[in-house]
Write a protein that binds this DNA or RNA. Structure first.
Length: 577
RNA sequence: GCCAGCGUAGCUCAGUGGUAGAGCAGCUGAUUCGUAAUCAGCAGGUCGUGGGUUCAAUCCCCACCGCUGGCUCCA
């Protein structure tokens, strides 16, 4: 791995040399290796690098690689390096900041190019394997949007041409899983110019969505949650109390009505807090677990929108748990259990857990943040769950546990979350009367299992490629009469299925059976009930499964019974023997 | 929001400085056919929007909108 990294990092230097040949005034920032290659952040003083440049850069890189130039490491005094890189402003900045206390720095030379670099590198350029420039993206100096914008040129680099080709092929295949493609093919959801970032749920997508809600609601009920619904729009004063008006303003939509300023909710918590405060609460009422399927609107930057994964309006399977401080850990453990159970039911076994800590813009005392963060870590430790820390990535009101999963091409997305919050209860003056007769402030936990139903649906689509397990497939079965002569019987079969609670369709189009099957396959419908003359006479159907298996003729009631077993088991398999 | 690319029929895509095609889908007709595409005909687009250059723009230029990939940000 170390060698591969050195090779990729060396490829970045070679790309920089190639770019410098084409654009002698190019300024170079950082050029590290990545999981599949490398990139280099570059600034052209005039104009910019475009895709047309990539083949030219690649060609020069190949020449350099063939040239077998040695990578020579030199240690030079920092002062000397400052002179050497006098016309490379980002190198000067690095020398004067990151490396300001280093008396000696290392530089690497290969051919006609020299770069400030810690190394290591391969010994000569011919040791670079297969290289392919991938794409150009924007970036910022030191990754900060307030700094100078740069261009990031990404390259792929593998030891052999074969590995590179395999990787490219694998990525092409993975891209076919994209939920945006499947969503269009299966007519699950859509987007329109008239509402950028606002998803439209089509009948089949909405069916899936409703099934997710029903699933989650059943779990909540079993665990002593109650459910509420709070308004989409509330007066701005409320958002001042909650801190959103100050800490979350740029993500919010506002409206003025009757000379009063309103905000559309970006989160459900403030509304929920008002409900808690409606009555005098007793310690006997706690923990109070209050769920809400809340549609929130957040004005996200246009460039970050991404199918169902990143939208401007989405539904959270939200819940707020109010409890006494001593119950905190138990409640968090319960949330972790519920989350893992849910993910398992949907076939997700690979996810990463993070604990996100206090961000720069935050309300409350650092000491309370410490306690809240510790509570989250202790709960995870108690469950023996491995997790990583995301410094400064908590919500403005509290630290959080994040459950992240990967999409088809390896990007990570957050689904579930559990957030401890000492501050909003305080700001809203929440109280409960303790056993001691005195008023106490409850602790609040914000939690979501799916996170965003839309995002979860997107992930589910990518995982299944639209071939959903039978229990959640929007259309579970379709009845396929072979000729018009069976249409009437087919209609009866269809009605029977509907009555039995099967989400069924009927295809009486004047097409041949092959075509009907093909259409059903393309829609990834799990069960195709073929109905020919033989079956029509005997009250049978001949189920064909989505995976191609032909179960042969069987009485309709037998099919329904078998289907019910699969559905009840939430089985990944389509038929249980 | 930033950088680059893209935007042609419902969908997938071809194409040209002289106002556009294909396949699928749709409609009509014929076919009634046992496990992934029956045949024929018809219809369908102010080529994202608005400016500009030009005798003439879908094609060239500019702006805007949207989408894609990344950056930053996030469920």
């Amino acid at each position: 791995m170390a060698e591969l990294n050195a090779m990729r990092h060396s490829a970045a230097h070679i790309m920089a040399e190639a770019i410098q040949r084409l654009y002698p005034a190019a300024q170079f920032a950082y050029g590290p290796e990545t999981e599949d290659g490398f990139y280099y952040d570059v600034k052209l003083p005039e104009g910019s690098i475009t895709e047309e440049d990539l083949p030219r850069i690649e060609k020069i890189m190949r020449e350099i690689i063939k040239g077998k130039h040695l990578f020579a490491r030199e240690l030079i005094p920092r002062e000397e390096a400052l002179k050497l890189f006098a016309d490379q402003k980002f190198k000067v900045l690095t020398l004067n900041n990151l490396l300001k206390d280093e008396p000696v720095v290392s530089v690497y030379r290969q051919g006609g190019f020299v770069d400030l670099c810690r190394g290591p590198h391969v010994s000569n350029t011919a040791e670079i394997g297969a290289v392919k420039l991938d794409r150009i993206a924007g970036s910022y100096w030191l990754g900060d949007a307030k700094n100078e914008p740069l261009q990031r040129v990404y390259g792929l680099c593998f030891p052999t041409k074969q590995e590179l080709d395999e990787y490219v092929h694998r990525m092409e295949e993975a891209r076919k899983r994209d939920h945006r493609l499947t969503g269009k093919q299966l007519k699950l959801f859509s987007f329109h110019d008239e509402g950028p970032g606002f998803p439209f749920m089509l009948p089949k997508g909405r069916t899936l969505f409703n099934l997710l809600v029903a699933y989650n609601r059943a779990n909540n009920d079993a665990r002593g949650y109650v459910e509420i619904h709070t308004p989409a729009m509330l007066v701005e004063d409320l958002w001042k109390t909650s801190g959103h008006a100050e800490y979350y303003r740029e993500h919010m939509y506002f409206a003025e009505v009757d000379e009063r300023q309103f905000a559309i909710k970006p989160m459900n918590c403030p509304g929920g807090l008002l409900v808690f405060r409606e009555e005098l609460r007793s310690y006997r009422d706690l923990p109070m677990r209050v769920a809400e399927f809340g549609l929130v609107h957040r004005h996200e930057l246009s460039g970050v929108l991404h199918g169902l994964f990143r939208v401007r309006a989405f539904t959270q399977d939200d819940a707020h748990i109010y409890c006494a401080p001593e119950d905190l850990r138990k409640e968090i453990v319960d949330i972790i259990d519920l989350t893992l159970e849910t993910y398992r039911d949907f076939g997700f076994n690979e996810f990463t857990i993070y604990v996100a800590t206090r961000p720069e813009k935050a309300i409350g005392e650092p000491e309370a943040w410490e306690r809240a963060t510790a509570a989250l870590k202790e709960a995870l430790d108690a469950k023996g769950m491995a997790y990583k820390i995301k410094e400064g990535e908590g919500a403005f009101y509290g630290p959080k546990i994040e459950f992240n999963v990967k999409d088809c091409i390896g990007r990570q997305w957050q689904l579930g979350t559990a957030q401890v919050d000492f501050f909003l209860p305080q700001r809203f003056g929440l109280e409960y009367i303790g056993a001691d007769g005195a008023a106490h402030t409850p602790v609040m936990i914000h939690r979501a299992i799916f996170g965003s139903l839309e995002r979860f649906l997107g992930i589910l689509i990518e995982q299944t490629m639209g071939a959903f397990p039978a229990w959640i497939a929007p259309t579970q079965a379709t009845v396929l009469p072979i000729t018009d002569a069976q249409n009437e019987v087919a209609r009866g079969v269809w009605a029977r299925l509907k009555k039995a609670g099967v989400r069924a369709e009927l295809d009486v189009s004047p097409e041949r059976l092959q075509k009907k099957i093909r259409n059903a396959q393309l829609q990834k419908i799990p069960y195709m009930l073929v109905l020919g003359g033989k079956e029509a006479e005997s009250g049978m159907v001949a189920p064909r499964l989505r995976d191609g298996r032909d179960l042969g003729a069987m009485p309709l009631e037998d099919f329904i019974a078998g289907f019910k077993r699969v559905e009840a088991a939430r089985a990944q398999e389509l038929w249980l023997e």
